[in-house]
Simulated scan of single mutants.
Amino acid sequence: MFILVNLKAYPCDPIEVATAARDVAEESGVRIAVSPQAADISRVADTGVETWAQHVDPNDYGSHTGSTLAEAVAEAGAVGTLINHSENRLKLADIDGSIQAAERAGLETCVCGNNPGQIGAVAALGPDSVAVEPPELIGGDVSVATADPGIVTDAVDSAANVDEDVDVYCGAGISTGDDVVTAEELGASGILLASGVAKADDPRAALEDLVSGL
Rank of each mutant, 00 (worst) to 15 (best):
G80A: 15
Q37F: 02
G126T: 01
E133T: 11
D154R: 11
D96T: 07
T153Y: 03
G117H: 05
Q37E: 08
V162M: 03
A53L: 08
A131V: 10
P36Y: 01
I83Y: 05
A53S: 14
S98R: 08
L82W: 13
V111K: 02
A70N: 07
P134F: 07
P116D: 04
P116T: 05
N114A: 14
E133Q: 12
D46W: 04
A74V: 11
D96G: 05
D60R: 15
E103C: 00
T51E: 12
E108W: 09
A123W: 04
C112V: 06
H55I: 08
P127G: 10
G80F: 09
H85T: 03
H64W: 13
Q100I: 11
G113M: 05
A145V: 11
A93D: 13
A76F: 13
L137K: 13
A160Q: 04
D46G: 12
G113F: 00
N88W: 10
G150F: 01
N59R: 15
E50L: 15
D57N: 15
T51A: 10
E136R: 08
T65K: 12
D154N: 11
A159K: 05
I99R: 02
S86T: 13
T146W: 08
P36I: 02
N161I: 01
V122N: 01
A145I: 07
D163F: 00
E27Q: 06
A159T: 04
I151V: 15
R43P: 02
D60Y: 10
I32E: 00
T81N: 09
A105H: 06
D157Y: 03
P58S: 14
G150V: 04
G117Q: 05
T51N: 10
G126M: 01
S28V: 05
G106H: 06
S129P: 03
T47E: 04
A72K: 14
I32R: 01
G66A: 11
T109N: 02
V34K: 06
I119E: 02
G66H: 12
V132P: 08
V144S: 14
V49E: 09
D128G: 13
L69G: 14
G80M: 13
C112A: 07
E50R: 11
L92C: 01
A101V: 03
V142T: 15
G48C: 10
V144T: 15
Q118L: 01
A53D: 06
V130Y: 04
G106Q: 07
A123V: 01
L137M: 11
D94L: 09
